[in-house]
Simulated scan of single mutants.
Amino acid sequence: MSSKVEAQLDKGKALIGYLPIGFPNFEESVEAAVALVESGVDILELGVPYSDPVMDGLVIQEATQIALAQGFKLPQAIEAVRQITERVSAPVLLMTYFNPVIQYGVDKFAADLAAAGGAGLITPDLIPDEAAEWIAASEKYDLDRVFLAAPSSTDERLRQSVELSRGFVYAVSTMGITGARADVDVAAQTLVERLRAVGAEYVGVGVGISTGEQVAEVLSYGDGAIVGSALVKSLNDGGVAAVALTAQGLAHGKPSAS
């Protein structure tokens, strides 16, 4: 069975856009996600609000806390995927810390996500050697599974992440939490080179990308440029219209052939 994300990446370099579900409210988060695709985003990454978002920067933390304060519940993540995939054809990944999935039931969550048209999960706090239940469920329901790789990872851990990921490997371009930065760390390119050396076919680079120029820089060596905080800030500041404009600017960094 083919991977939805790999099928998209086969077409060319990808802009991957992140927004949290339920911010500023559920309905507007769905509209904003659809607007991203209509504005040049190739793959959607929808964040599942969580009470202890250890990897997220301040902009995303504040947005997810607003969603939680408004009563976000995990079934809404499945419903968001369903509504979005009914309107756009781009692959939709959920980015979630794994405890909520365990509470929901790993097999049930995978089944419901697949039924809603979801492509798979990005799991920032789940390491491959502790992911047997999720790997089994993702295989059963034909879902992508994206593990993270950091500059501090050993070559053996990078190899393990490459072997067990499906879709792409998520290269965290800088040490620390997410957030827009003026420059993309030089560590990103080195990390992608290390991942290629242990067999990675597709690598998405995230954490710190906020301009079309940075998208172009990252896509000169990576397969996907992942943008989060810049989009969330635009949505917060100016609503759906603003986030669409930001996505259009970011999409200018993609190679013209994609």
Rank of each mutant, 00 (worst) to 15 (best):
S2A: 11
S3Y: 04
K4L: 03
E6C: 06
E6I: 00
L9Y: 01
D10P: 01
A14F: 02
L15M: 05
L15T: 03
I16K: 04
G17I: 00
Y18T: 11
Y18F: 12
I21K: 00
I21T: 10
F23E: 12
N25A: 14
E28W: 12
E31K: 14
E31V: 12
A32C: 10
L36Q: 07
L36W: 04
V37K: 03
L44N: 02
E45I: 07
D52C: 05
D56T: 07
L58Q: 14
L58I: 12
V59I: 13
V59M: 11
V59K: 14
E62K: 11
E62I: 11
E62F: 12
E62Y: 13
T64H: 12
I66G: 13
I66Y: 14
L68S: 13
A77H: 02
I78V: 15
A80M: 13
A80S: 13
Q83V: 15
E86L: 15
R87S: 08
V88Q: 02
A90G: 02
A90Y: 04
A90E: 01
F98R: 10
N99W: 11
N99K: 04
P100H: 03
P100M: 00
V101D: 09
G105M: 06
G105A: 03
G105P: 10
K108I: 07
F109P: 14
F109R: 02
A110F: 00
A111R: 04
A114C: 12
A116E: 12
G117F: 12
G118P: 04
A119E: 06
L121F: 06
L121G: 01
T123R: 07
P128Q: 07
E130C: 08
E133K: 15
E133M: 05
E133R: 15
E133A: 08
E133V: 01
W134T: 08
A137R: 09
A137I: 00
E139I: 10
K140F: 02
K140P: 07
Y141E: 13
L143G: 00
V146H: 03
V146D: 02
S152A: 15
S153Q: 13
S153V: 11
V162A: 09
S165H: 07
S165I: 05
F168Y: 03
V169L: 09
S173P: 15
T174Y: 14
M175T: 15
M175N: 15
G176A: 08
I177N: 14
G179E: 05
G179V: 09
D183K: 08
E193S: 09
A197P: 05
Y202G: 01
G206W: 03
G208E: 01
G208M: 02
S210D: 00
T211M: 02
A216Q: 09
V218G: 01
V218E: 00
S220R: 05
Y221A: 10
Y221C: 07
G224Q: 01
G224F: 05
I226D: 03
G228Y: 03
K233Q: 04
S234G: 11
N236C: 14
G239F: 15
L245W: 08
T246Y: 02
A251P: 04
G253N: 01
G253D: 02
G253M: 04
S256R: 07
S256F: 06
S258A: 04
